[in-house]
Amino acid sequence: MKILVTVKRIPDPDEGLKFTGGGLDYSSHKRVPNAFDEYAVETALRLAEVVGGKDRLAEVVVLSICPQGQRQHVTQFLAMGADRGIVVDAEEDSLDTIAVSKAIAAVFKKEGADLLIAGKLSQDLEGNQVAQRVAGLLGVPQACFAANLAWDRAGKSLTVGREVDDGVEVKKIPLPAVVSVDLRIVLPKSVQNGATSPDHAYNEGPRLASLRGITMAKRKKVDVFTLAALGVASGGSEQDVAVAAPPARKAGQMVGSVEELVEKLTKEAKVI
């Protein structure tokens, strides 16, 4: 079993936005891994490892599109426990979504991977479409917005609980396949691989890299591909025409009591 996990670096979402000349200036922003991608790597590691044993059930390969000299986030995920890395050497902001999806699909095929795990969206652009696109390009099943999953190794399938508008849908998909993960995939018992005890409770959230992991990361292999080698053009289907701050809300008012609040809501705002 080979699991490919897509990871992206984004401008730190906790830093304020800088609007300059009709655009956003991220030049001074620290770049950090997208949180959903950390969840995706954690998901892959929980599938691959057997807690309390030495077996590895899968190889976990992290894939990122970024300038090859700026792949600290890839090293970070190798330190977390991924087995090796692949970098597609390109300035990620210069690619459109179509090109990103094609590059990922090309690597998936080249690697002969069985499963792609992606974060459901990146916190900066919130596209929420790459996993779906890659599944379509590969002609394989998809389970998006996964809140939990169980791997049936004998049946070569995954049973995935998906966050949908009116609840949770449980979808069974044969491998190879694409999964995108939502927040709750990192709850203590969200991922079951049939080998780690179902009672094992992980710490919530993505794991931290251990000191040993950090040392090991430097020795792990990272392959570098170019877009051309993958047969993908950078694409020009998307263009940012303008960026603006959303209009500010009208200043509000503080009230001193529940009675005053109800008075305002009934007489002024007229909403109850």
């Binding site: 916190q123 998307e238 940012d240 025409v241």
Partner: peptide, 15 residues
């Protein structure tokens, strides 16, 4: 909206 609604992007798409 992008970046948790902190900015509004006018996106032109071709295709």
């Amino acid at each position: 909206p992008v970046s948790a609604g902190r900015a509004l992007l006018d996106l032109k798409v071709k295709g």
